[in-house]
Design a protein around this nucleic acid. Structure first.
Length: 378
DNA sequence: TGGTCCCGCCATAGT
DNA sequence: ACTATGGCGGGACCA
């Protein structure tokens, strides 16, 4: 038993949000094309279970795409605009808000239970044949489970923002809207827990931001996404949006050390030792020059080896590991990278969206560039 | 205290 | 049967 008495367990350092940032730090680089779950778990020093959480929401926004067992294709930030566009269209088509009870597939909360797959569940639909970047489920019997999935919940949560005029949504409301169950408090409790998870990772990517209702002090989330004024709405490390007792994550890439002690009488030795995962090199890079990312344990003073990281407006929270990494992606770097990936949108609206995204980033970048670079890393 | 949400048990889906 | 996924909710954390 490890009643870790001396070590300092810090919940914040184990948050999904931080894990997400680390995950992004690790894979958001040129040349990365495949993400292996084992590899991610090993390198991030977390158990596999957590990787599933991250990956599921990232997939919901188009950043990742499941390729095969244990493997995901890294789509990157450039895939976000299209993914959001698709979500928005889907949301509108399905009428998220009005559709009330049907949002998450009317979920017959009682496990299993035949439940004829409702025809108009919120996802997939006819969108086949399209080159959608979003994951699609094939609605079938056992897909009852999918209806409750983090992925679907994430998509619906995002749709809520994209398809409604609500600029602020509390998780309570979201849970309610995404499951118009007749006041199933228990169900909602669980759903809210999940929404917390989702909100955390979306927050770390600056898709949303936590705030408080002006009137009620109730916490709620505001959508930042692609919209908003570039100078304020987008995540800008210089202007921390915290102050509002928002959780600020620490910096720890390998949070495998301190565990929350569990007063479990019968430990029943888990076979879950992540050490059993054979670390296979699953980060393939067509580009052989990608430097290895050594656990990133950058102690103050040293310069983390994070130069190739490119972030868009969705920049994950910068780790203030004390060390100041000076390299900021140059506009040229980003431009070339972007153009390399830049999709050829036929759809004008989509193109506009993407252009806006590019413009916003540039605006943000140029503004930041003028300031003292050292400010960037608090 | 009550809002957060980490942790990991264990049911299911996939091979 | 074994492994990969990931739903779920107890209860630790923390403002």
């Amino acid at each position: 038993m490890e009643l870790d008495s001396g070590s300092t367990y810090c919940r914040k350092q184990k948050s999904l949000g931080l894990l997400c940032s680390n995950f992004l730090n690790l894979y958001n680089r040129e040349g990365v094309d495949t993400v292996g779950l084992d590899d991610a778990a090993t390198r991030l020093g977390v158990e596999r279970r957590r990787i599933y959480d991250i990956v599921n929401v990232l997939e919901s926004v188009g950043i990742l795409r499941r390729k095969a067992k244990n493997q995901y294709t890294w789509k990157g930030f450039s895939a976000i605009p299209q993914a959001l566009q698709e979500l928005k269209e889907e949301g509108i088509k399905e009428n998220i808000l009005a559709n009330g009870g049907n949002i998450s597939g009317k979920i017959s909360d009682d496990e299993d239970g035949d439940s004829c797959s409702n025809p108009n569940s919120l996802c997939q639909k006819d969108s086949k044949s399209s080159s959608s970047v979003l994951p699609k489920f094939s609605a079938s019997k056992a897909d009852n489970r999918k209806e409750k999935s983090l992925t679907l919940l994430t998509q619906n949560f995002v749709k809520l923002f994209l398809c409604s005029k609500m600029e602020m949504i509390s998780l309570e409301e979201a849970a309610m809207l995404l499951l118009k169950s007749e006041g199933e408090t228990q169900i909602n409790r669980t759903k809210v827990r999940r929404l917390y998870d989702i909100a955390n990772v979306l927050s770390s990517m600056k898709f949303i931001e936590k705030t408080h209702r002006p009137d009620t002090r109730k916490p709620a989330f505001r959508w930042l996404g692609l919209k908003g004024k570039p100078d304020s709405a987008f995540a800008c490390p210089v202007a921390p949006i915290e102050e509002s007792k928002k959780r600020v994550f620490g910096a720890d890439l390998t949070n495998s050390s301190t565990k929350r002690y569990k007063v479990n009488p019968a430990p029943a030795e888990k076979t879950n030792l992540l050490t059993k995962t054979k670390l296979q090199p699953s980060v393939k890079c067509e580009n052989s020059e990608v430097d290895e990312m050594h656990q990133g344990n950058s102690e103050p003073g040293s310069t983390p080896n994070v130069r190739n990281y490119q972030f868009g407006p969705f920049a994950p929270e910068i780790q203030n590991a004390g060390g100041a990494e000076e390299h900021k992606p140059s506009v040229q770097d980003w431009e070339s990278l972007a153009s390399a990936y830049r999709p050829q949108y036929q759809n004008q609206a989509l193109k506009d969206l993407f252009d806006h995204y590019v413009e916003a980033w540039q605006s943000w970048y140029s503004e930041v560039a003028k300031k003292n670079p050292m400010q960037l890393i608090p």
